[in-house]
Nucleic acid binder design. Structure first.
Length: 504
RNA sequence: GGGUCGGUAGCUCAAUCGGUAGAGCAGUGGCCUUUUAAGCCAUUGGUUCUGGGUUCGAGUCCCAGCCGGCCUACCA
């Protein structure tokens, strides 16, 4: 649809093409090489405010206060209010919106009528002039000269509602970013969060590394991979589904504190909470364990609350529920949650059939073929996790669920791991990492037997060289940002979410 | 993959029981030198997602397809 050329689009475009041609005929360049920008919308405002402080009080309150500093700003025209011999224009730059005031008589003879009035919404212009405050109090550039920097040949979406069609928002995100300031702000917040994650980890002496995205064996998680062909090696490779196994090789290599912020790819369904490619943070720290990871994630989220959000309380956009990240977070054992929820203190000693029968009473859907531990896990995922709205560390998870973590010292079949659940979702699983190569091989072989994960022999060889004891953690960044911004949908946090290509 | 709802002008939305497809914004032509979704006058713009069918007559009803939203399943 975006490229559809109905008659009307053509009409609107034809008008703009005509203006473009006219400009060229008159020897003007509608797509200039550059514009010398001295200020942004924001720094211009700041410059005017500090100028105002130098004025005697009486003058700064006067509507006829003298003009402030001269600035040169540039941006895209969002609104155009032409009022006879003067106009108000708002332009958008990287910092936001600033207003321009253009008087006919402030421009060279004829320019206002012949050129300026022919500008279109969406055109990018540069302007120069002093700042002043209008009658209604808005800091505005009094334009003394201007230039069309880049002509827009297509019309912008309607200015008041912005773009609302979700399909077009995703396919033409740039239009969403131009017209919807809250969307713009969300992606700026996302960037700031990533920046603070790095700062926090760098501050704790973690080394940021980049490991391959193309894997000969897609390991470290259990998900279907995307397959691609490596021509130079003439064999199939996989896009990575996790970062884990290469980061552990880094631990073997003596990088005791490493992290990677990277894209992983899972060839599975698309939903409100799933995009096939998403951003993952994985962190590994030698000479600590999953309890060290608890401290780390708690500190990291508090750092983001303080340095990005300015609050520990986050209100969910869809229902107004408040998530409180302040203070210490609840810690509870997996088995405890299961027993409470099922109301059965002996749940774990019940037979598979008894468990299956119980799930029917609870009204949750469980595959009748599911293994014993999978039934329990379904109870957790469908009845418990969605209710863990406030931050909760769920600990001592059954060993069948995770092949890469160390067993708890009590040897009761549970693992030294936690899953941090917030907002009804798993935000970060963390383990005391398995460093015994013999057990690790057994666990992975068992999983290969029944699951689709292949054995990464290179990884096992690395472990046989000795990996220091370590805590490790994975954080789904998109979900974390959904949580931190109160958004409802993963697609609001991903600039260009996966969509089926349009048929031409 | 299954279920369900939707697709009307460039954008945001109307259109009663099946009876001539409308409005606002944008565009175009005017008026207007401090506006805030500026205002006023005039005006252009439609293969109603696509293809079939029912009917005297289809944006509206039926069938199929395309694309999307939501729910659901797979994603430990």
């Amino acid at each position: 649809m975006s490229e559809a050329q109905t008659d009307n689009t053509s009409d609107l475009m034809a008008v703009r093409r005509k203006k473009l041609d006219d400009l060229r005929e008159r020897g003007m360049d509608p797509f200039r090489a550059n514009w010398d920008q001295t200020h942004t919308s924001k720094t211009a405002l700041e410059a005017y405010e500090s100028f105002e402080k130098t004025l005697p009080p009486a003058e700064s309150e006067d509507a006829h206060a003298p003009d402030g500093p001269e600035v040169s700003v540039a941006g895209r025209i969002l609104t155009f209010r032409l009022m006879g011999k003067a106009s108000f224009v708002k332009i958008l730059d990287r910092d936001g919106v600033i207003q321009l005031y253009v008087q006919r008589d402030a421009l060279p003879e004829g320019v206002y009528n012949e050129d300026f009035k022919k500008l279109d919404l969406g055109d990018i212009i540069g302007v120069r002039g002093p700042l002043f405050r209008t009658k209604t109090g808005e800091v505005t550039v009094r334009v003394q000269n201007y230039a069309l920097v880049s002509k827009a040949l297509r019309p912008l979406p309607e200015k008041f509602h912005g773009l609302t069609d979700s399909e077009q928002i995703y396919r033409q995100r740039y239009l969403d970013l131009i017209t919807n300031q809250d969307s713009r702000q969300r992606f700026l917040t996302r960037s700031k969060i990533l920046q603070e994650i790095r700062k926090y980890l760098w501050g704790k002496e973690f080394v940021e590394v980049e490991t391959p995205s193309l894997h000969a064996v897609a390991g470290g998680a259990a998900a279907r991979p995307f397959i691609t062909h490596f021509n130079a090696l003439d064999c199939d490779f996989y896009l990575r589904i996790a970062l884990e196994l290469h980061l552990k090789r880094m631990l073997v290599g003596g990088f005791d504190r490493v992290f990677e912020l990277g894209r992983v790819f899972r060839n599975e369904g698309i939903s409100r909470r799933h995009n096939p490619e998403f951003t993952m943070l994985e962190v590994y720290q030698a000479y600590t364990d999953h309890r060290g990871m608890m401290t780390l994630i708690h500190g990291l989220l508090h750092h983001i609350c303080e340095n990005v959000l300015g609050t520990y309380q986050i209100e969910r956009a869809d229902d107004g529920v408040v998530i409180d990240l302040s203070g210490d977070w609840r810690e509870v054992e997996y088995s405890q949650l299961i027993k409470e929820t099922t109301g059965d203190a002996d749940w774990f000693t019940r037979s598979r059939e008894e468990k299956l029968a119980a799930t029917q009473k609870f009204g949750i859907e469980v595959n009748p073929e599911a293994a014993d531990y999978e039934i329990t896990q379904d109870v957790y995922e469908k009845m418990i996790e969605p209710k863990l709205i406030q931050p909760t560390f769920v600990t001592r998870i059954p060993k069948e669920l995770i092949p890469l973590a160390k067993l708890n010292a009590s040897n009761d079949g549970t693992l030294d791991i936690f899953e941090l659940a917030i907002n009804g979702q798993e935000i970060a699983p963390a383990y005391s990492e398995q460093n015994d190569p013999i057990i690790q091989r057994q666990m992975l072989e068992e999983q290969v037997g029944e699951e689709r994960q292949n054995l990464d022999e290179d990884f096992l060889v690395a472990l046989e060289h000795g990996m220091p004891p370590a805590g490790g953690m994975g954080v789904g960044i998109d979900r974390l940002i959904i949580l931190l911004t109160g958004a409802a949908n993963i697609r609001d946090m991903i600039l260009f979410p996966a969509l089926r290509p349009e048929k031409s």
